[in-house]
Each structure stands twice: as structure tokens, then as C-alpha cells.
Design a protein around this nucleic acid. Structure first.
Length: 418
RNA sequence: GUGGGCGUAGCUCAACUGGUUAGAGCGCCUGGCUGUGGCCCAGGAGGUCGCGGGUUCAAAUCCCGUCGCUCACCCCA
């Protein structure tokens, strides 16, 4: 038997309702905040991702699905969507539009990783990108949208952490200072962190090993090395969040895995996710548009891992399905009449179904029961003769006669009121 | 890429120290109830014991390999 690919999952009808709530909430909220949907390709030139995410990040170094097009061009399945959105923004000169500066997207991303709880090779993200302003209020707006999305869905104990990385000019001297500090403590760091000192010293601060946490307790903080402007920006963001009553904590150890972030960065974790407990993350990336060849344009955004949201989405967030009317038609004339009633019900926008395999009333009722039908319309040859069908309320077992010609309308009004 | 756990019916799991025809619950089908669902009762269908090799008189059980799933590390949404 041919199986699906490792880490690439089917989303079966049983779980679709939870995905639909998540996606509909994302769309509705994004639009209400003034973000427009954008759909960018799932594959792009490899170079786009290498240049935006950072050539020496894990994502680019070993997690991309990269392949050659027929002419030898190197293409890659998108590991995240910001790069593509920025590319589209530049390519279509969206910065020149009076209205389109705020975008949201939903869709699959691809990373070649070992699957585990909350981590897949094809996974889905919802994200937004806000271009064209350095205002800290834009950072606040983006976080507020994210917070409303997550808390609106009722995720368990969401926790928002924020930090600032400053701008490129802030970071270089800080990195040097941090590295100097780490060298003095190298003997207390884990093997991984010693390697990180070479590749990305900021990551050492993010290490979960208790020994490393202790060793770096009094390490220099990035927030103490910010320029006056960067510090002010971070202060303003925090003030804005307080103003909107969005709970957060500053975590000066917070680091992001993608190279393009500047200034504000943030992450939301929540309970019940296992080891991969981040549901969403984002930040400002003021240098990316320019780095990809566009005009210098500040931007801020976030991405949410939808599988992770789905994993902890409470059942109460999932609305019950539309009430079902089941048509139990049997006998030669009954089936013909039943088909017409079924079509009429559907034409009125009601959820209605039948089972063509069932030939007896018993079989129909059993199927109706399994489907959780609210009402069953019973039509046999007798009913066709009298011109009156039976409507059975599956909850109360009450049955009443209705005229064949008006039954559909009557049921519609009944479902509205009941 | 590294490490742990697990692969027996559609699903969840049994099968003691290797020992007859591999079982149960749920689900499914049929009948009791020939035009009335759930509950109950009776019966029934359904299994290459992940796959390959080895040890043995005998393997779901032991050994080796392999594939798959899963959790964790790394890293990340």
C-alpha cells in the first residue's frame, strides 16, 4: 500500500470543523483590522529564502525542500511566507498603493524536520505583514490582532513574551560584548551552546539547559545595549500594549530563529502543546524589503502555527453543525416524491440528506439516528396517495402530518424558530 | 541528523515462563421488530500477528535486519 509522506498529514472530515473555525476567525479578524488577504506561491526561487531567512539558519541550511526546475533553476517549497509576501510587495509595487499596506495569508509551509508533537513537514500558518510604518503603534496593532485571535479561540493559558533586538547598529557591539562574557563562562556551557557561540551567540541565552541558564544569569542584556531610539521604540510598544490591556512579560533572553528581525520581537506560548509550546511568533523586520531589492520599508508581522492551535483548541470553540433533516423515502412512488422533497429542502438552504441504500423505514431511521438528524421526513407510497407526509422529531419521537406540497417551507420556519 | 517508546481485527487493547483453531470491548452486518432509530437479546462477517530472515519439534512471543508510527533532542509556528 502506498502511504502518505512522513510528516505530511491528511486533515480528515472529522477534524475539518476545528480547522474551519480557526481559518474563519483568522479571516474575519484580519479583515476587521484592515488587512487584505494575499496568496503567494508555495514555491519560489531558492535564493529568495536564502537571502531573507538567513543563509546560516537551520531552516536554510538543512530544512528546505529544494529541487531543480527543468532548466536547472533552483526552486524551494516555502518554509515560511514572509519572504514571498515581501517579494510580491516589491514586484507589484504594493507600497505605491494608497490602501494595500496590510496583508494576511493562510496556507501550507514546508520544512524537512523530524516530526513530533506540534511539528510537521507540511504545516499551516496564518500570518500578517504590516508595511510602511516605523510607528510602535503598528507593532502594538499586530500583537493586538494576534492576541485577539488566540484568546478569542479560547486557547489555554496563552502567554505573551516580548523583547527588542534593536537595530543592526545596536546588535553588532552587543554581540561582541555577549561573546566576551560567554568566553569567560565557556566551561559551564553545554556542548550545544559552545557551538552556538560560533554560529549565533544570542541563542545561548535561549538555551533550556538549567546549567546554561544559570551561567548566563548575569549576562549582558540586549535591552541594556539599545540606542536611545530603539529603547524609546521598545518603551512605546510596551506602553501601547498596557494601554490595550494586553498582558505580556519582557523576556530579554527571547531570540528568533530568522535573521531578518529587528527591534520588537515576540512569541506566544500556551499550555498543552508538549515540547513545541510556541503557537505564534513575530516581530519587526525593518531591513528586509530593502535587502530584497525594494525601497527601504519598515515592516512588522507575525505567524501562527495552525496545527498547534488546532491541537489545543477547546471543544467549546467549535460550533455545532447545521441541523439536519433526513428524508426517509421508500416504495416506488415514495422514493420519487421523497427525491422532490429533498431537493426542495436543499433549495431552501437547509441541510438535508437521505440514504439511497436504505430500502426500509427501519434502515432509514437508523441512518438518520447515526447522522444526528433533527427531523425525519417519512414518505412511503401511502403518503403519496394521501398527499400528506410524516415528520418525525427524533428527539421527542413526536410525529405529525404535513401536506406534501408545503412541508419543506414549514420545516424551514420550524428550524429557524426552534 | 541523534536518542527513547511502540507496531496483533475498522478503533482501543489482551494472549502467563515460546505450546492446539490468536481473544475481548467498541464499531459494522443480520434477525428478534414484514412502515418506526437509540436500549436489550441472539447470531455473523472481519486478522499476511508491520515486513524479511534466523533459532526451535513448535514463534504474535526469542535473536538479527528493515520499514512505519510516536515522543524527545536539535531547531522552530
Amino acid at each position: 500500500m502506498l502511504r502518505g509522506i512522513k510528516g505530511v498529514k491528511d486533515i480528515l472530515p472529522d477534524e475539518i470543523a476545528r480547522w474551519q473555525v480557526i481559518e474563519e476567525t483568522a479571516r474575519r479578524l484580519s479583515l476587521s483590522y484592515g488587512y487584505q488577504e494575499i496568496r503567494v506561491p508555495v514555491f519560489e526561487l531558492t535564493e529568495l529564502f536564502a537571502r531573507s531567512i538567513g543563509a546560516s539558519t537551520d531552516i536554510v541550511e538543512k530544512e528546505m525542500y529544494t529541487f531543480q526546475d527543468r532548466d536547472g533553476t533552483s526552486l524551494t517549497l516555502r518554509p515560511e511566507a514572509t519572504a514571498g509576501v515581501v517579494r510580491a510587495y516589491i514586484e507589484h509595487n504594493l507600497g505605491g498603493s494608497a490602501i494595500s499596506q496590510k496583508f494576511f495569508y493562510l496556507g501550507p509551509m514546508f520544512r524537512h524536520e523530524r516530526p513530533q508533537a506540534g511539528r510537521l513537514r507540511q504545516f499551516h500558518q496564518y500570518g500578517v505583514e504590516y508595511f510602511g510604518t516605523r510607528s510602535p503603534l503598528a507593532d502594538v496593532e499586530v500583537v493586538s490582532l494576534l492576541w485577539r485571535f488566540l484568546s478569542g479561540l479560547g486557547l489555554p493559558d496563552p502567554s505573551l513574551q516580548v523583547n527588542s533586538l534593536g537595530d543592526a547598529a545596536d546588535r553588532a557591539p552587543y554581540k561582541a560584548a555577549l561573546l566576551e562574557f560567554l568566553k569567560k563562562r565557556e566551561d559551564r556551557l553545554c556542548q550545544n551552546c559552545r557551538r552556538r557561540m560560533e554560529t549565533n551567540p544570542l541563542r545561548v541565552l535561549d538555551c533550556k539547559v538549567p546549567g546554561c541558564q544559570a551561567a548566563t544569569e548575569d549576562a549582558p542584556r540586549i535591552t541594556d545595549h539599545l540606542s536611545a531610539g530603539s529603547r524609546q521604540h521598545f518603551q512605546d510598544v510596551q506602553a501601547g500594549l498596557r494601554d490595550l490591556d494586553i498582558p505580556f512579560s519582557v523576556n530579554s533572553r527571547l531570540v528568533r530563529g530568522l535573521d531578518y528581525y529587528t527591534q520588537t520581537i515576540f512569541e506566544v506560548t500556551c499550555r498543552g502543546l508538549g515540547a513545541q509550546n510556541a503557537v505564534a511568533a513575530g516581530g519587526r523586520y525593518d531591513g528586509l524589503v530593502e535587502a530584497l531589492g525594494g525601497a527601504s520599508t519598515p515592516a512588522v508581522g507575525f505567524a501562527v502555527g495552525l496545527e498547534r492551535v488546532a491541537l489545543v483548541l477547546p471543544a467549546s470553540a467549535i460550533p455545532p453543525p447545521q441541523k439536519l433533516i433526513f428524508v426517509a423515502a421508500f416504495g416506488q412512488r415514495g422514493m420519487a416524491a421523497g427525491t422532490r422533497v429533498l431537493d426542495e429542502l436543499r433549495g431552501l438552504g437547509l441541510r438535508a440528506d437521505t440514504d439511497y441504500r436504505a430500502s426500509t423505514l427501519k434502515a432509514h431511521l437508523r441512518q438518520a439516528d447515526r447522522l444526528g438528524a433533527e427531523y425525519v421526513v417519512i414518505i412511503g407510497d401511502d403518503e403519496v396517495t394521501t398527499g400528506r407526509l410524516l415528520v418525525r422529531n427524533m428527539g421527542t419521537k413526536e410525529q405529525e402530518e404535513l401536506s406534501l406540497s408545503t412541508a419543506a417551507q414549514t420545516l424551514k420556519s420550524r428550524l429557524k424558530t426552534g
